[in-house]
Design a protein around this nucleic acid. Sequence first.
DNA 1: GAAACATCACACTCAAACCTGTGAAGTTCA
DNA 2: TGAACTTCACAGGTTTGAGTGTGATGTTTC
Lengths: 268, 268
Amino acid sequence: MTQATAGETDDPRDRALGPEGRQALITEMVLSTGSVSAQELAESFGVSAMTVHRDLDELQRQGVLRKSRGGATAQPSGTFESNVAFRSKANIEAKQQLARYAAGLVEPGMSVLLDDSTTVFHLLPHLAGLTPLTVATNYLTALTDLSEMRDVQVVALGGHYDAQHRSFMGTPCIESLRSMRFDVAFVSTSAVTGAYTFHQEDKIVAVKREMVAAAEKAHLLVDHSKLRRTALHRLLPLHTFASVVVDPATPAAELATLRENDVRVDVA
Amino acid sequence: MTQATAGETDDPRDRALGPEGRQALITEMVLSTGSVSAQELAESFGVSAMTVHRDLDELQRQGVLRKSRGGATAQPSGTFESNVAFRSKANIEAKQQLARYAAGLVEPGMSVLLDDSTTVFHLLPHLAGLTPLTVATNYLTALTDLSEMRDVQVVALGGHYDAQHRSFMGTPCIESLRSMRFDVAFVSTSAVTGAYTFHQEDKIVAVKREMVAAAEKAHLLVDHSKLRRTALHRLLPLHTFASVVVDPATPAAELATLRENDVRVDVA
DNA sequence: GAAACATCACACTCAAACCTGTGAAGTTCA
DNA sequence: TGAACTTCACAGGTTTGAGTGTGATGTTTC
């Protein structure tokens, strides 16, 4: 499988990559060497020039590089910006892993409470296969998606809309949470340090606290980029969660630190 | 292609319909005859009983009919008419006129309460020009649209999602309404007779009553097709509304009847 | 203007998603 | 209980759409 077929001029390892894998490699190349040639790319991947152009168009759209005649160069604003783009992609993968794991904690018939995090967004497709379910959230995007699923009883938490988070917050949201009770809640936050969780926004802290209180078991979903960071407001101590779920890329040292404080930590 | 193969017992015209076409025909049948037999459907379409069951499940989910042993029956009179798919096609022009008039009753800075009617749907674009506004509703489609407008503070009324109306209802919705107060509310209903308004669904009646109670001025928006009709549940007497707005196509006789009972009636 | 490169429009491939039937297992009704 | 009906799980069959290449047609560069 790793052996080159006689007569083939290109590395067969690169043949079966989809656009995604190819574009990831192109990103690496352009970041390390500063520029790439379209023709060279076509040869080294064993694809046509057209396909390379399409890849470069896509990467340009994402802001990773800039096309030029004959190939592409790294964004002038520097490696940093590209690294951010790369990081946010890596985080997406982590979030998908967290979401997949979280789906495993849900069983048909349960009542589930979701916050307005992007991790939750990745969780939604998995829920379609775990019906019947009752799902409550304050996240507008999720409400729309859930409303189209069969055998999902959707509950909206009311409140004042916050365009930045696309979710509903404030007193109405908190009031509704106080009069409901859920089997399980999935909550995320922006920072975790030591035995505490943090978030930079007051009103979100208020809602998340109430969410945790309204659920039999509340699971905290965080990718490892959130660890060893803080934010303005203290949210809750880690031990108030039934478990803390982190992505597989979390360093062992971080895991050990988390586990110090009588906290159950699971790796997705 | 249009010729029947020898030995085939069923009508070839019905063979190539997808689920969609088949379901449309089933809908017609069940509406005209009141009930259908699963076995007969299977034979007349030349498909298996399993497929018919899947069609009926889907139509039941859409609120078009109700499954029963051996087949399906039409939804109790009136319920189907409250189905979004049906309502949105009827009297579009009248509804747009009502919506335009209603927009004239809104001024920048107001807090506005909207119900889940299609008339409200047509009102939304007008609101963009009347900002700043605070707008509350239990109608999912409206929440999505409003969330994209600038200078509109959006408030969601929470509750249990109802796929047929695309809106949130039940206790949580009513509770939030009880703790809020609005300058103006726009409410619609499915039937008006004499001095009373009616609606066929219990849970909607409960929400609309609370909406009217939560607003300084509540306006009833009805196109003339709703007049001289009744539905199962009494909603509210006409005089509880600040005004009743009807479309210009309303017969003069109807107008006179409405005005008999000390009710303010405006023509859009 | 010729060569190199970029884009466009169309067609092909292949895998995922959808639709359907089958037979077994479960449920309801008489 | 037995018959009719419904649901479930799985396995074809079909359709759809993403990904790709090809050759024709623009566009840039020297």
